[in-house]
């Protein structure tokens, strides 16, 4: 017969948090950078089809690290939430703040109530008409939410990558500069000095998609060739 041991709530939460942190630390990093032209999202991801970055709505994108099945279900839930909201109210009533708050509640509920917490960390980015109007939210496995300024780094070696990105970040960067900075950050924890375009997944949120591309959807995924061409441009 098994004996039920008393475990204090502090210990229980700490164990869960440690478990989730360990899962996330195994993954590769994601960098989200707000810049002059919009928001650049760069993930180290060798798969061309299993994405870590996704479109949620007109101005809103999603990036995640951790277990694929867990953040993919969160991404799909986010797309459904945003589409239902935009359909029942209006497209402009869908905001990153609302979405991030729903994510925070779901992650918090899973963290306390389920058998195991989600081993994920999310970023929700909304591009505004000016850089001051950009919103970057970071959501962690326990449902905590943080409103970040300038950039977000998540994943395995986030400290090293974050230090490298922080050193080079400035508001005046264009997309090429932001992606170059993100790539420089992503190799901070590695032996190599460059990452090939095939090893990363890159997407951007254009600040003015209506004038540039004639669509209200700001999200644009960059193919490997686009990334190579963009990086070849001189600053």
């Amino acid at each position: 017969m098994t004996q039920q041991f008393y475990v204090s709530p502090e210990q229980l939460m700490k164990d869960r948090a440690d478990f989730a942190r360990k899962g996330i630390a195994r993954g590769r990093s994601v960098v989200v950078i707000s810049c002059r032209e919009g928001i650049a999202l760069v993930a180290e991801n060798p798969s061309p089809s299993l994405h870590k970055i996704g479109e949620i709505y007109d101005k809103i994108a999603f990036a995640a690290v951790g277990k694929y099945n867990e953040f993919e279900s969160l991404r799909q839930a986010g797309v459904r939430y945003a589409d239902v909201r935009g359909y029942s109210y209006d497209r402009e009533d869908v905001t990153a703040r609302g979405l991030a708050s729903v994510y925070a509640q779901s992650l918090g509920a899973v963290f306390t109530a389920e058998q195991k917490p989600f081993e994920v960390e999310l970023a929700v980015a909304e591009v505004g008409s000016s850089q001051e109007a950009d919103h970057l939210y970071r959501l962690t496995f326990d449902g905590s939410i943080a409103d970040e300024h300038g950039f977000i780094v998540m994943g395995g070696q986030a400290d090293k990558v974050s230090a490298a990105v922080e050193a080079g970040w400035q508001g005046e960067l264009d997309f090429a500069g932001a992606i170059r900075l993100a790539l420089a950050g992503l190799v901070a924890d590695k032996e190599t000095t460059t990452l090939p375009a095939s090893a990363v997944e890159v997407a951007v949120l254009d600040r003015r998609p209506e004038t540039g591309r004639g669509t209200r959807r700001a999200f644009r995924r960059l193919e490997d060739a686009d990334v190579v061409a963009l990086l070849a441009e001189e600053n």
Binding site: S49, H51, G54, E55, I56, Q76, V79, R80, D83, G86, Y87, R217
Partner: peptide, 12 residues
């Protein structure tokens, strides 16, 4: 319109 965009976002 939402149906088509939704499919595109979910399925990629």
């Amino acid at each position: 319109q939402v149906e088509l965009e939704h499919y595109e976002k979910i399925e990629g």
